[in-house]
């Protein structure tokens, strides 16, 4: 492998990794606050891309506007899911909520099949993203550097939100101890809703970029990225935002380099994430950056 090739792969890996990171943040925030693996999170990717797809097809709106609308609508959907399917189960055993989340995920996928049809559709990629730049001998489409840029920008906004605003402080408090936060007169339901606003909008942005990167969209497209990004969150240490970002990069770069260095193993690419997950859970269940919590007896 030449250096150029390697750099090309690395760039792709970083690009994919930052996409994973963006989606993983939503998982980790929701898990950090209500200890739920939000199975439906990945399917919000699909919802966002289809909204953009139909926005452009049916209403012929300009793509930046369509993208913004798609993010808003997907966010509304994410918050609604929490209201309808998770909130009533706030005091139920955690597994019950997990089952509800699995149900919502399958509902979205199959509703997608019913409404949008099972055949893959070609997602419109604005020319700007497809334009190829040459850095030295490495050919890099705009999209490849655009994705990490968006991720970094959103991450900075998120960090500001979490550490410099009142609602951010409330979110951190609820994540630490929901019951105590409630006693401190924090409106826990509102904080959880807001967490879903943040998580869902990040998933929507992630979904749109996913559509740009892999422009064949279908109703089941969110399932595998969803699982992988949850895995990224676990690798990084669930509940920890920097961890989710780190996990996303480890997974993205790892996947691309695995295929680059061992082309024979390309077929096992989707198993790579799961192997990494199981290794993490066994060797360091708290992930790269997670804290250790002992169970009280």
């Amino acid at each position: 492998m030449t250096l150029t090739e390697f750099l090309q792969h690395l760039a792709n890996g970083i690009s994919l990794g930052s996409l994973y990171a963006l989606i993983a943040i939503g998982y980790t925030m929701v898990y950090g606050i209500i200890r739920l693996v939000n199975f439906a999170h990945g399917d919000l990717l699909m919802v966002a891309t289809y909204m953009a797809f139909y926005g452009m097809l049916l209403f012929s709106l300009p793509w930046p506007l369509v993208f913004i609308l798609a993010v808003i609508l997907t966010t509304v959907m994410g918050v609604t899911i929490e209201r309808v399917a998770y909130r009533p189960l706030r005091d139920a055993p955690r597994i019950t909520v997990l089952i509800s989340a699995i149900g919502v995920s399958f509902l979205l996928q199959n509703l997608g099949l019913v409404v949008f049809g099972g055949r893959s559709k070609a997602f419109y990629v604005p020319p700007f993203f497809a334009t190829i730049n040459h850095i030295g001998e490495t050919a890099v489409p705009n999209l490849v550097w655009f994705i990490p840029l968006v991720t970094v920008a959103l991450l900075m906004i998120l960090m500001h939100l979490l550490y410099r605003t009142r609602i951010g402080m409330a979110m951190r408090a609820v994540a630490r101890d929901l019951d105590t936060a409630r006693l401190m007169a924090i409106d826990v339901d509102q904080v959880i809703s807001f967490t879903f606003v943040v998580g869902s909008s990040l998933a929507a942005v992630g979904g749109l970029m996913w559509g740009l990167k892999f422009p064949q969209i279908n109703p089941l497209m969110g399932a595998m990225p969803g699982l992988k990004c949850f895995i990224a969150a676990v690798i990084g240490g669930i509940g920890n935002i920097s961890g989710a970002v780190a996990g996303g990069f480890v997974l993205g770069v790892g996947e691309i380099l695995l295929v680059a260095f061992f082309p024979d193993l390309a077929g096992y690419r989707d198993a790579f994430a799961f192997v990494l997950l199981i290794l993490t859970l066994l060797i360091r269940p708290t992930g790269l950056l997670g804290e250790r919590v002992a169970e009280k007896v």
């Binding site: 509800s100 399958f106 109703p219």
Partner: peptide, 16 residues
């Protein structure tokens, strides 16, 4: 296609 699973996912959510 998918209609049956829509029904069953809804059923699962409602039961839960």
């Amino acid at each position: 296609p998918g209609m049956r699973m829509v029904v069953f996912s809804l059923l699962l959510i409602v039961v839960t």
